[in-house]
Write a protein that binds this DNA or RNA. Structure first.
Lengths: 221, 221
DNA sequence: AGAATAGTGTCTGTCAGACAGTATCGC
DNA sequence: GCGATACTGTCTGACAGACACTATTCT
């Protein structure tokens, strides 16, 4: 066992699954049912299974399919974490992925799960996480914020149709700071990724036009 | 052998080592001495050795130390390439790193090596590379260009002291297009990463002031 | 003086930030 | 009309691109 471990490192995939709910950016945590680090909160993850997974991204997709019964709209590799210290089982490689879940699929997800699951504040998870998952989480969060800072639109976090104000709230939740409405909308005018519909969201005030993502849109590129 | 390969994937690190020479961006290629893909040009790479390597970055550093007798100033992970198809030995993970070599260490490197080595045009390597290394190379090149486009200064490619014009030539080599001198220098005025010295490079014309990188400077962040 | 390279001044268009203003709904 | 939210107009400062200009060296 130790001998194979030295020649072949343990390879795991971990996923930082983000959503926006109640105006805050949340990340999915699971309570570990098995050793090592049993009982501690962690990012969902699992061991690579070369006989089942076409590649590492497919492995991350499988992990999420098992923990969560949703098709993940977007999944992207962030970076690796490796070495002898990060997992008590020995020399290991963790490949971190970032996933985005639309707002309208969040509630269903929580209800379906049996194991302990929590949508934690992404910036302040409130638990000491297992392994190096705190560092992993902050790394994923930094990458996500960088993208939005560079004007990438997190449309994978939105329902199919949404208002521009809702999109702005999502960006604000990711960045953790308010944005100017006029500036935000001026930028969106030139965006190829946004398509206007002829529908409106009717509420208690002036109706807001609904938009959707361009066909084939991908957030992280 | 096949059984272990299914449970434990082959893990390799590959390095895109860039330099600037003769006004062009070059990447180091080696001719593979062993199967698989013997005789084909490839990015320098090697199998991870958990008993020797503290982590994946250290593995990349070791690979370069063996192929090249230089201390690498900067090394950064780009992304992974994985699956059953990319290496004839079976299910594998390649972790790609990007490294930058100062201009004044290039000539020494070429002379010292016994095995077949070539500084190829980074944008047009001119060989069909082994494995998925052509895709790896273009991925690394794209990341490098993105950074410079976002005003990161590739000081790790420069000698200890350099003129602003030399730095501009390096950026132009990376981007593959000319830059405006006045625009380039105006941006540098506000840079914390650049320190002016009181020395000048005296040549055939008006002397140019020499600059150096700030202590503790890191290119990719 | 002239060639060559280092380094600067300036005009213009674009865009972000700030903020006030107008438009359109439900009541 | 009034409150609330959607949406727009405009001023200002920062900065990029383009390009002409000045400065300092060697021959």
């Amino acid at each position: 066992m130790m001998a194979t471990r030295v020649l072949f490192p343990l390879v795991v995939v971990d996923v930082a699954l983000f959503c926006v709910d109640d105006g805050g950016l949340r990340v999915l945590l699971v309570k570990r049912a098995l050793e090592p680090e049993q009982g501690r909160w962690a990012l969902p993850g699992g061991v690579l299974k070369p006989d089942q997974d076409a590649n590492l991204e497919a492995a991350a997709r499988r992990v999420l399919r098992n923990k969560v019964s949703v098709d993940i709209p977007h999944l992207e590799e962030i970076r690796t974490f490796s070495g002898n210290e990060r997992d008590s089982r020995g020399w290991s490689i963790a490949v971190l992925f970032c996933a985005l879940l639309p707002r309208d699929q969040v509630q269903a997800l929580i209800r379906d799960k049996v194991e302990a699951v929590e949508w934690a504040d992404a910036a302040k998870p409130g638990h000491r996480l297992a392994f190096d998952h705190t560092e992993q989480l902050f790394t994923a969060l930094r990458v996500l914020r960088d993208k939005v800072d560079r004007h990438a639109l997190p449309l994978h976090l939105m329902p199919e149709k949404f208002t521009l104000t809702a999109l702005q709230r999502t960006c604000e939740a990711i960045l953790g700071r308010p944005l100017d409405k006029a500036v935000f909308r001026r930028r969106l005018k030139g965006s190829e990724d946004l398509v206007e519909t002829d529908e409106f969201e009717r509420g208690l005030q002036r109706p807001a036009q609904l938009y959707r993502a361009r066909e084939g849109f991908a957030f992280m590129a």
